[in-house]
């Protein structure tokens, strides 16, 4: 019963992804179909059009096995044996370094701003002045 429920809920999620895909094609949007589907579902949940229990089990399950879903795409690397060369190694190194830079920059930036907001909130609590933060 539980399995049938999960499969049914995944089918609902699939439908959202499909509608997103159609909207993407029809309106020639730069945002990919699955992301449009996600925004639609988010809107549906927020406006209480779609009850959370309709997708909860299916979404939870898909997110639990998320890394499995990448494997077929990953195996595609086998079509690029050229990556095992000096030039390929250079490209891989650039990608790795650039990813680390991205990680460091976005992580530090958001953490810095988060701490500033928290400090401001504490100050607000102490002085009981209600200023418009942000």
């Amino acid at each position: 019963m539980k399995i049938i429920n999960i499969i049914f809920q995944i089918a609902i999620l699939y439908a959202f992804s499909f509608v997103g895909e159609v909207l993407h094609d029809v309106f020639n949007l730069p945002i990919p179909g699955s992301i449009i589907g996600m925004l639609l579902l988010l809107g549906g949940l927020s406006l209480k059009i779609i009850p959370l229990r309709f997708i909860e089990a299916g979404a939870g399950y898909l997110l639990k096995i998320l890394s499995l879903l990448f494997i077929p795409a990953m195996i595609g690397i086998m079509n690029y044996p050229a990556l095992i060369s000096i030039k390929g190694a250079m490209l891989i190194v650039i990608t790795i370094i650039s990813t680390m830079i991205t990680m460091g920059a976005s992580g530090m930036m958001s953490q810095f701003l988060e701490k500033r907001i928290q400090k401001r909130k504490e100050k607000d609590k102490c002085s009981k002045h209600y200023s418009q933060s942000l």
Binding site: S17, G20, G37, L52, G58, A59, G60, I71
Partner: peptide, 15 residues
């Protein structure tokens, strides 16, 4: 398996 990536992206609306 690959085709489940689309619904998985949609599922991110849940968290």
């Amino acid at each position: 398996i690959h085709s489940l990536l689309g619904p998985a992206v949609v599922a991110l609306a849940y968290p």
